[in-house]
Each structure stands twice: as C-alpha cells, then as structure tokens.
Design a protein around this nucleic acid. Structure first.
Lengths: 226, 226
DNA sequence: AAAAATTTGTGCGTATGTATA
DNA sequence: GTATACATACGCACAAATTTT
C-alpha cells in the first residue's frame, strides 16, 4: 500500500484567507471593538504582509457585514445594532430547524452521547466563569447535529450566522455576568431526539434560541440601552 | 427653503461594484456559461479598467459561489449542481415564509392590487414566450411582499438567494419550453392574503416554491440528467 | 483653504499550476 | 514519467482620488 496517496493534498493557503481568519477572530472575540478603526497599512505592518491581501480580507469582511468602509476615508468595525440582534436570531433558528428536519433520521446514539459530553463541558466552563470556552462549547453542541444535514449550502449559511451571533453573545455575556447559558435547554433537545419526536425537537431548538435572545434583550432593557 | 439640502448625496460608485454587477448579470443570464473560463486580463481589456477591481469583483463572486478559482491557474463560472438546486429552494421558501410571518399584518389593498398587476404582466410575458421578462416579473411579485418585512438582514439574504435561483430558472426555462411559471399559484397567494389567513398564505408560498423546484426536477429526470 | 490621512486604482514581477513535447 | 514552456493568478510598491481635520 502506498501511503503517499492517503495523504491529503497539501492545500495552498492564501494570505488573504489567513488575514481574514485573524481579523474575523479579533472582531468576534472583541479584540477589535465596535467602531474601532482598522487601517490596512497598520495591519500590513503588524502581520508582515503587503496591503493587497489585507484589502481583500477587509472587502470580504465588509460583504459579510463585519466591517464598514467609508470611501477614501476609513474602515471600522461594524457596531452591534440592537434591531439586528433579533433579526439574526430569528433567521438562525429558522434555518437551524430546517437543518434538523433534514438530519432528523440520521442521528445515532453515538451522536447523542457526544452531545451530552459537550453539554457537560459547557456546564463546567460556565461554572468556572470561562465564557469564551462556554460559548465555543455551545456552538460545538449545535454543530454536532447540524453537521449531519446534507444541505451544505445551509450549513455554510448557518456557520456564517453563528459567527455574528457569537460576537453578540461574547459581547453581552462579558458585560452581564449573571446571564447563564442553556445547559438545561440542551438536555431537552437531547431528550426530544431520544424520543424520536421531530416536532418536539424543533420546538426545543427554537425555544433554546428564543431564550438566548431574550436573555440579551432583558439585559438591554435593564441597562436602559434600548 | 434650501433645496440643495434635500438632494440625495451623490453616491460614489466603485469600479469593483460596477464590474461585480456586470459579471453577475452575465452569469445569471447565461452570457457567461457554466465552466466558462474568466480571465481577469481579458475582462480588464474588455471593460477598460485595471485588473485590481476585476479581481475584487471576482473574489466577491467567488465568496458568493458564482465563480471558482483554482490557485494560480484559472477562474471559471461555477457549474449548476443538481443537489444544490433543492438545497437552495428549501432555504429560499423557509426564509420567505419567515418574511411573510414578519410582514403579514402590514399588507394593504394597494399592495395586493400591485401584486395582481405584476402577476398579470408575468402571464402576458409567458404567453409571448419572453422568459427573461417572465422570471423578472416573478421575482418582482415576490419582492412586493418581502420588502414589507422589517428584517433587513433577511431581505439581503433572500435577494442573494434569488440571484442564484434566477440563474437556475433561466437555465432550465430556456431548455424546457413546456415549463410554465406560476400564474395561478400567485393568485392563490393573493387570495390567502385577502382572507387574512396567515397559515394559508405560508402554505401557498411554500407550495409555489415547491412546484417551481419540481418542474425543474421533472425536466431533469425526463432528460436523464440525474 | 490647505494639508494630512486613507482608501481606491494601476502596473509589474514572481510563483504556481497546467499543458505539451 | 520528466522536463520544458506557457498561462494565470498572487502579492507588492507606487500613484491618484477623495474625504476629513
């Protein structure tokens, strides 16, 4: 057997893609804050590459709504808009429910076991106050069943939406420490899958999302930001 | 009163955006066919601009899935994938139904009248065999109620999806002349709105999309392309 | 009103992949 | 299968245009 053929073809990496991933991470995790200016020249020096790949990464981020550019003036991180939050949440759970409809029959006990483990890990992260890890585990939990859908276009759109929601959640969870993630709601989703009840699963998925959205909205109202 | 202040600020146009619109139109309408190679140098000469805005437009088209680039080799129009068709259709009607839920109470008799007119115009275009205009009128019909939704992120996503579906529909309607657009189904949607029955409206919207998808799939099976 | 900062657009050399001998 | 030649995208430095201070 020739093991050479088993190796994955070396994927060429583009500087623009690497820059995109770095900048996206900085925006999502809050290293780059809302309204903060981004100068391609500065990033260029910081990352040690020319300005072309930086510009290309910024153009993509602009198309996806993470940054905004005023012509010949400045590029800055898109601020979080209160109206957009509920918009994105409703799109996300609508599409995630479509994914559930598609993958519902494909789930196995192994998947469910893995979901329970990840959910437990999320719980422990919350206990330790590690919000970054907790949000990551939450995303991983949902990804476990979404990935079973055969609708690859849907998966791409959901992955993109998740980045936007992740940014929102990290922003508010950091501010409102009292807010808790959805450990018990995830258990309901697992139970619904186990009962092989699709409608119940869809409802519990939607409820999970709605609660997440309401936790943020409640915080906004309390703080008088809305 | 100073009328100067009432005038809209002159929006600067970017070459990259103009190039994007032109290339997108060429791809959607079939001027650029599937798998056809696109050389930035060639487009550059043809449109009389430098290669940078061409590259930027191509990068955006690549992110949106309309073209594909082999590293350091070639850029070509993404072929229509049979699996993707049903994927995109299901995403489209799922999101359009979400838009209907959002705008349902906002519709007026004037909107419904306009929808009837556009539907009639679509019918006449079909009669005259003008498929390009017919598909355009179909898109316009749906846009009439979608635009009433306040979820601007949803509207953007739907507009993007429509471009992809428009390409698919123009491709197959051109090949399968027998295929007809959904004049009577649109009448059902209008009737459901008039009866103020949201569930019926949602069902008729989904049915309209499903039929459109099935018309194409039927053609594919007949021709043995699947 | 002018200068400074920043994005936008141009041209070019290089690296990579593909076809051909 | 190998080496060579060719085509194309990739990244860089420079110049122009525009907005803001």
């Amino acid at each position: 057997m020739n093991y050479l053929h088993m190796e994955q073809k070396i994927q060429r990496t583009f500087i623009r893609d690497e820059v995109y991933e770095i900048l996206l991470d900085w925006i999502v995790t809050g290293t780059l804050r809302a309204d903060q200016q981004i100068r391609d020249k500065e990033i260029s020096k910081q990352l040690g590459v020319s300005r072309t790949p930086i510009r290309e990464a910024l153009l993509r981020l602009e198309n996806e709504g993470f940054v905004q550019t005023k012509a010949n003036s400045s590029t800055f991180v898109t601020p979080i808009n209160y109206d957009e939050i509920s918009h994105y949440y409703s799109i996300a759970y609508t599409l995630e429910k479509l994914a559930v409809e598609d993958m519902f029959t494909k789930i196995t006990n192994q998947h469910l076991k893995k979901m329970e483990i990840v959910n437990q890990e999320m719980y422990h992260s919350i206990q330790k106050g590690e919000y970054f890890t907790a949000v990551k585990k939450d995303t991983e939990f949902h990804a476990l069943f979404i990935s079973l859908s055969s609708n690859s276009e849907l998966k791409k759109m959901l992955a993109n939406l998740k980045q936007k929601l992740k940014r929102i959640e990290l922003f508010y969870y950091d501010k409102a420490k009292g807010v808790h993630l959805s450990f018990s709601e995830h258990k309901k989703i697992i139970a619904a899958f186990k009962q092989n009840d699709m409608n119940l699963t869809l409802d519990s998925v939607e409820q999970n999302w709605r609660n997440g959205m309401e936790r943020i909205q409640k915080y906004l109202i309390e703080k008088g930001d809305m």
